[in-house]
């Protein structure tokens, strides 16, 4: 059975505009999927809908099964049991994903305290190893978010997401807000950790080159519809539709400019 099954997912506004239109895909345990599209294509909304976190005013319909549990229409309590333990999220902007007034160590501790019931010395040790895992120095635990770099903030956010060993990690443009050099480091870190813990990954990005570094399977979204689904290699070789072709062409132009290997 797959870990995440999305079938016929539709997200619409209260006044009837459709933002995500009949999207279906699934991710098996330990597998990876990239969700690609330009801004406004509905990829971030899909990520939010999967965890039942749509902003107020948006309605989801269709079926989302997370570890066999329906997400759409579920109450907060049953969703809370899934969040963190089954699926965790890393957001685009680490500066808003972290509470500016809470020390990083305490923020990483929050999900550990909640899901594993750790307290005191055991909790501190778990926080230390969570930070070590994302290659952050131990002193970061005592720092506030504004006292560390953007890359370090994103590492801390990843540490929070991974703290409870979720079966599925949802990464919503996790490297878009970072410098190019830091991007590569954070991507490599994500790639290594997802592999090490045998996690499934839903990677959302507008950037084909970035997605190509972490996953082989992709869904190409345009205006809320899936226009292509399949292995990245096949899509690069034969884009078929105009939208995907444009996406591939622009990725290639960028890649050539950077001397890359797409």
């Amino acid at each position: 059975m797959s870990l995440l099954t999305v079938s016929d997912l539709t997200v619409s506004t209260a006044d009837g505009r459709t933002l995500v239109d009949g999207l279906s895909f699934s991710i098996a345990k330990g597998h990876r999927l990239g969700l690609i599209g330009e801004s406004g294509s509905g990829k971030s909304l899909t990520a939010l809908a999967v965890t039942g976190l749509l902003p107020p005013g948006l309605r989801a319909s269709g079926t989302v099964l997370l570890d066999g549990t329906p997400v759409i229409g579920a109450n907060e309590r049953s969703l809370n049991r899934l969040r963190g333990r089954v699926a965790a999220v890393v957001f685009q902007e680490p500066s808003t994903a972290l509470d500016p007034l809470m020390r990083l160590g305490n923020q990483v501790a929050e999900p550990l305290r909640r899901h594993q019931g750790l307290r005191g010395a055991a909790l501190r040790a778990a926080v230390a190893s969570a930070l070590e895992e994302v290659a952050l120095p131990a002193r970061v635990a005592h720092a506030y978010p504004h006292e560390v770099s953007g890359g370090q903030r994103q590492r801390a956010a990843i540490a929070m997401a991974l703290a409870c060993r979720p079966a599925l990690l949802i990464a919503d443009e996790p490297t878009t807000a970072l410098d190019v050099t830091v991007q590569a480091e954070v991507l490599a870190l994500l790639d290594r950790l997802v592999a090490a813990h045998d996690m499934a990954l839903l990677f959302v990005s507008h950037d084909l080159a970035v997605v190509g570094k972490v996953t082989d399977e992709v869904v190409v979204l345009s205006s809320g519809r899936a226009v292509r689904t399949g292995p990245l290699r096949a899509i690069l070789a034969d884009p078929q539709d105009d939208y995907t072709a444009a996406l591939v062409a622009s990725a290639r132009r960028l890649d050539e400019a950077l001397g890359g290997a797409l």
């Binding site: 965890t51 809370n80 969040r83 699926a87 994903a97 972290l98 999900p111 899901h115």
Partner: peptide, 10 residues
């Protein structure tokens, strides 16, 4: 986002 994240971690 940190409130959303707190919710995602239950």
């Amino acid at each position: 986002d940190y409130v959303t994240l707190a919710r995602t971690s239950g």
